[in-house]
Design a protein around this nucleic acid. Sequence first.
DNA 1: TTAATAGTGTCTTTAAGACAATATGTT
DNA 2: AACATATTGTCTTAAAGACACTATTAA
Lengths: 310, 310
Amino acid sequence: MAKYVASKEEKEYLKKYDVTKFDRPSVTADITVFAVRDEMSDEELAQRDKSNYRKDPLRELQILLVKRASYPYRNQWALPGGFSKPGESCDETARRELEEETGVADAYLRPFGVFSEPGRDPRGWIISHGYLALIDGRKYRLHAGTDAWEAAWFRIEATSTETSRKKNKQNGVVIEIRHDLSLYQRERNLKLKVSLLERKWFSELHGYHEYEILDAGGLAFDHAKIILNAFLHLRREAEGLGNVIFDLMPEKFTLNRLQKAYELVLGKELLTANFRRKITPLVLETEEEIAGVGHRPAKLFKRNPEEFYS
Amino acid sequence: MAKYVASKEEKEYLKKYDVTKFDRPSVTADITVFAVRDEMSDEELAQRDKSNYRKDPLRELQILLVKRASYPYRNQWALPGGFSKPGESCDETARRELEEETGVADAYLRPFGVFSEPGRDPRGWIISHGYLALIDGRKYRLHAGTDAWEAAWFRIEATSTETSRKKNKQNGVVIEIRHDLSLYQRERNLKLKVSLLERKWFSELHGYHEYEILDAGGLAFDHAKIILNAFLHLRREAEGLGNVIFDLMPEKFTLNRLQKAYELVLGKELLTANFRRKITPLVLETEEEIAGVGHRPAKLFKRNPEEFYS
DNA sequence: TTAATAGTGTCTTTAAGACAATATGTT
DNA sequence: AACATATTGTCTTAAAGACACTATTAA
């Protein structure tokens, strides 16, 4: 940022300027951390039914939640995040909080929305900046929960169904879409059922849409809304095989694993031949192969840095 | 927003909770208002060279800027906008400021980014929420500038050129892109030349990018950065003939005008036959035709509200 | 050998791009 | 009639979708 040079008169003005004269909000960054991880832990994987040794482990899309240790919403699950401090940008807040709470220092991290509806936080006027983080699921293993601080991975699955479509007086259209999120924590056998209503309103001239939480399913604050928006944002970025999905992968990966990641995010299956045709220019073949699978081993690929775009 | 119900113990906690104990930023909404408008005013249009009566007036993409009446950056051009007040969401702030400063009550209005770099405002810690507004250019005519408050439309043109592409140590890639914005105010014959550097950095695993202002060209604060981001956001939304562009049009429009709007935003010409093929399902033909042109009149169309999506 | 995944070939369908041709008000 | 834009037809090229086929490893 270029240094701002003020005139003498202006310096005088700035000296007298007092930001504290006005009401101000607190601002936070709340991070939805996605990872593609095995359905089973390594131990379970090692001792599973030997008759099934050929099958690849199932993979699922998971997000990271923390259990709140203090009020408000004590003992409820929430997104990792925290308050912005003076002298840091929102991006820095998000990066700092992500590292503090997960130990992950380098991740794909992008802002996707601002949540500022009055009443969203019972403590007062608090604006949240929603961040999307994508990490390699094998890189980060949670430490066992302590009393003071507990974090866990939840499988996330989403379904959306249009529940209503009506014409309004001015020949516009009102569409309601119900979004259901299912968040499942395996070790605790804990299932959070979240549902939201998206209302799209189109007049002859403009469109607008908003989300309403029908059932927070035990999530703190308006985090149900933030998580849904993060998920839809991720899905939009993955459509047309946009290359964010690579950020969910380790440095080297098989094309099958990459395809599975796309499928989990997009919520539909892809045809392998077509997927490979599209993805080929974005990856580089390595000399290595994956080992320890009960069938033909696949070549490992890595990202082609020449073909990144954001 | 569902009302939050607190336990007795929790109420106690919340009563004692004092947001003012922590440092907090001020937050603003800054709005980049786009419109497609005639190169000439109505008067000029009426008295232009009669030999040329057949030709349609040229149209240009314009943004609205206001001249700052007070410090900091007094007398410099800036985006319309202002501070969020308690009890309103950021969307409401943007909508209120847009109406206060332009009189436009219904417009396409969407957040596209947060600008929070330390030092971006000499008054202190002030976070800006960038909003994109699209309005029908014929709807809003500026009142003549007064001393206290001056607003004007500037034609905006942008060019981007990759100036450097290097591999870094870890086999990653660093790309630099120079963005030049030209903002031209016709009545004042005032040209602001703005230039920014976008730096994309790709490692083996992740990508990141940032913008640096090389020459603010006389714009206040970091508004050069905000305007560029607004423009690129608009362009991205228009790609693949996404239907935001309709929000720049009046209720009824000719397909040629619509095509021109797309071309201005996309920065390239489109082939008419192909454009019409793609746009046809998104519009409805009306019975009316445009009048007063020196050639075959075109049918007027309006949006097909069944085919909106956002 | 078999189960299971790895990887390829090719036909069909759909969309994008290019360009030529015809149509029709105003003056 | 001439200008300027309006509007349509169709050929070419490229991408997406569907599906069948062959290949290779560990046990």
